[in-house]
């Protein structure tokens, strides 16, 4: 049993987008804040901070989760992927990002990292999804600009079960 004392910082290390990273966190430090302020990976956005909006979605051990509802200490030893991990070495878009670009699936772009991480976790399964399944998955991500139509279209281009012209 380990007790981490309030106010003192302990080392937390995990794999971030394939690279070992570490930093220091208080017991109450949220994973979202740890990623942004300690690691400097500010692509993960923070909005509601109580698990409703999905802006802070990251992929932990292959599963999309809310990084604001997880303590940094709970991430110890995990394999974490964030929006920064989608960038190719030549800065080109991956298929999902490309579809978002083509379909105008973002306006202000604040919710986009969370949405792309939710969809990336679906993409990992290798299967194709129906529109209701895509909409159900995206129901955990709130976008205040687009009305979702373009986001769903972009997601269906890459993950959908029908052929797109």
């Amino acid at each position: 049993m380990k007790i981490l004392k309030d106010g003192s910082k302990t080392q937390v290390s995990f794999t971030l987008n394939g690279t070992e990273v570490d930093g220091y966190a208080e017991p109450r430090t949220l994973l979202s804040d740890f990623l942004r302020h300690e690691i400097g990976a500010s692509g993960t956005h923070v909005a509601c901070e109580h698990g409703v909006c999905g802006a802070c979605t990251v992929v932990v051990d292959g599963k999309a989760v809310r990084s604001c509802l997880m303590l940094a200490a709970q991430a110890e030893g995990k394999e974490i992927r964030t929006i920064e991990g989608l960038a190719a070495s030549d800065d080109s878009f991956n298929k999902l990002q490309d579809a978002f670009h083509k379909r105008f699936a973002l306006q202000c772009g604040f919710c986009t990292p969370g949405i792309l991480m939710t969809l990336s976790s679906l993409q990992d399964s290798g299967r194709r999804y129906t529109e209701p399944e895509i909409r159900e998955a995206l129901s955990g991500n709130i976008c205040r600009c687009t009305g979702y139509r373009e986001i769903v279209d972009a997601a269906l281009d890459v993950l959908g079960d029908r052929v797109v012209a």
Binding site: M1, K2, I3, L4, K5, D6, G7, E26, P27, R28, L30, D33, E49, L71, A73
Partner: peptide, 20 residues
């Protein structure tokens, strides 16, 4: 908002938890 400060116990057994 952020949580108020607390101590964090990483339990390894059920007895760790019931003891705490």
């Amino acid at each position: 908002m952020k949580p108020a400060p607390f101590d964090l116990c990483i339990a390894e057994t059920v007895e760790d938890v019931t003891g705490a």
